[in-house]
Amino acid sequence: MTTSEPASKVAELRDPASVDDVEWAARLLAATPTHEGRDPELLRQWARTADEFGSRLAPVRSTARVIERYDGLERMLLARYTSRPPTVELYTDTLALAEELVDARGWRAWYPPGSVRAAALAHEAVHAHLHHGPARGALRQALGHTVLRLGRLRVAGHVAGAEEVAAHSYARTVCGLGRSPLLLTAALRAALTRPGREN
């Protein structure tokens, strides 16, 4: 960082909580391939829509088996859902770092003890739900991204990253978190990419 960095950027690096959840979601979309050059206001609109969609989803029961692994820091993963067979991989080393960050940043009121793990499981359950059910089409309709129009026929397109935003919002809602797991993800990314950090 140089001294010419805007004051807001410096504050954000010191305190990622100064950025609201929808802005973190818009940044996630902006960093997703296929969104290069898209209007930032359109990305914010999609982020708001996906966030609202995820927060309104009915509770989802996961039937995926859960496997704990210890190589999340090197992969930069907290959890991951794979569909064949339906499995959630939880990365215990990244979960432990997330809990440390919550305490170090004074975010325990937003992320009570055990909630990071619960949120990771809820987040991945929604990925399974969107992968296997009609909710994926409903999310596309809600986003309103049209890729083809023939007269009155309209084909809703996929918005890369929107399912991720919806999953974070769902996890925030069902786990009763004060902030989206996107904030914690941003703090983890910053901690894992800090110069001089050893895994």
Rank of each mutant, 00 (worst) to 15 (best):
R189F: 12
F53D: 02
A96N: 04
S18E: 09
R44I: 06
V22Y: 00
E89T: 10
A166K: 07
Y81F: 09
P59L: 13
R44W: 04
H127F: 08
V88C: 02
E164F: 05
T94M: 11
H158R: 08
L28Y: 06
L42C: 12
L192P: 01
A47K: 07
E163N: 03
E163W: 07
R38E: 14
L121G: 07
L13F: 08
G144T: 10
L192W: 00
G106D: 15
L95A: 08
E164K: 03
V174P: 01
P195D: 10
E124Q: 15
T63F: 01
L13A: 14
A26V: 07
A98L: 02
L13R: 14
K9N: 04
S83P: 15
A187K: 03
A26N: 11
H127A: 01
G151H: 07
G196N: 03
S18W: 10
L188G: 05
P6M: 14
P6G: 12
V88P: 03
H129E: 13
V22P: 06
R179T: 01
G54N: 07
G72Y: 00
T87G: 03
L95Q: 06
R69I: 00
V126H: 09
A109V: 13
T87F: 11
T34K: 03
W110N: 09
E23I: 07
T63N: 11
V126N: 08
G196S: 14
A104E: 15
A191Y: 02
R80Y: 03
L97C: 06
D103S: 12
P6A: 09
R172M: 12
W107N: 06
R194G: 05
A135F: 09
L192Y: 04
T185N: 09
T34C: 02
G114N: 14
L42R: 09
T63R: 14
A98W: 09
A171P: 13
Y170I: 11
L97G: 09
P59R: 10
T63Y: 15
A58Y: 08
G144Y: 03
E100G: 11
E89V: 14
A166G: 01
R197H: 04
E164P: 01
V159A: 12
V155P: 10
R75P: 02
D51T: 04
T94G: 01
L77G: 06
R136S: 12
V10N: 00
L192G: 11
A190R: 12
D93G: 03
L13P: 02
R61I: 02
L95K: 11
L97M: 05
E89Y: 15
A7K: 14
L153V: 14
V116E: 05
T185C: 06
V22R: 15
T94E: 02
